[in-house]
């Protein structure tokens, strides 16, 4: 077991309950898990397993009913709405399935948006490096509607990386892409972890996508049911098939 100080993010006995009485849904049920820095983790599970809820609570978008979540050493439950926002733009990156970009901003403006919002200094060398790595160097002044779906997701990944966050959450980042383009994005995410030392937690239900990660966590009915290190697509696929058992 690692010491808590080295974790990029973690939960302690995290539970999330929606509704009350008959309509009560236990989306997360006493989940304790940590994510190491410079690791690419995939969270898998069927619909309603709580994987999205886990990600949202970890990112400070949704408060827990009981338990604690940490980004680095900061416990999110004690933060005000404003502090949570500031924490998100400084320490957390996001990649969503779709609609990742502000349509009125150019690619480069989208990438530097979190830094701009924080009125922070842009680490130009780092941003240039990121932009070059995602292969967008000649498209930085384009608007999102002038980019293909794959290019848009690459901008989203670059945006998530631009502020050098402690952790990046990706919600089905390749869900809207064809497998070839999706593969390129996942390749890039993996190299961001391996070469740039970033930490990524990705929610997915695609075994192939999960196979790009270093570690797969399986969720069912709000509980962690299994883990797998250095997964392959086939192994993940087999495991999911049996997840209900």
């Amino acid at each position: 077991m690692q010491t808590t100080t080295t974790m990029a993010a973690r939960t302690e006995g995290a539970s999330k309950i929606y509704g009350t009485g008959d309509t009560e849904v236990r989306a997360l049920d006493d989940v304790s898990i940590g994510f190491n820095p410079s690791q690419f983790t995939a969270i898998m599970g069927p619909s309603g397993s709580g994987k999205s809820t886990l990600m949202h609570t970890l990112a400070g978008l949704d408060p827990l009913t009981t338990g604690k979540t940490f980004i680095g050493d900061v416990e999110l439950g004690s933060l005000s709405e404003k502090d949570l926002t500031l924490l998100r733009r400084q320490k957390v990156g996001f990649i969503f399935q779709a609609f990742n970009l502000i349509p009125t901003l150019s690619a480069i403006e989208n990438i530097t948006l979190p830094v701009d919002l924080a009125k922070g200094q842009i680490d130009k060398a780092w941003v240039d490096n990121v932009v070059k790595t995602v292969g967008l160097a000649d498209r930085t002044s384009h608007r999102p509607d002038e980019l293909s779906g794959g290019q848009q997701q690459r901008v989203a990944v670059a945006r998530a990386l631009a502020s050098k966050p402690e952790i990046i959450f990706a919600d089905e980042p390749t869900g809207n892409l064809d497998s070839k383009t999706g593969g390129e994005i996942l390749d890039f995410m993996r190299s961001a972890v391996r070469e740039l030392g970033q930490t990524i937690v990705m929610v997915t239900h695609d075994a192939v996508a999960a196979s790009y990660s270093d570690r797969v966590v399986f969720l069912a009915d709000g509980k962690i049911v299994d883990e797998m290190a250095n997964p392959t697509a086939d192994a993940v696929f087999d495991r999911i098939k049996n997840l209900g058992d």
Binding site: A59, T85, L86, R89, F96, L113, L117, R159
Partner: peptide, 16 residues
């Protein structure tokens, strides 16, 4: 709505 949600998620404060 979605755009505003995205802005909030990536760190735009309510005030901004």
């Amino acid at each position: 709505t979605r755009e505003l949600g995205l802005l909030r998620a990536v760190g735009m404060t309510r005030r901004q």
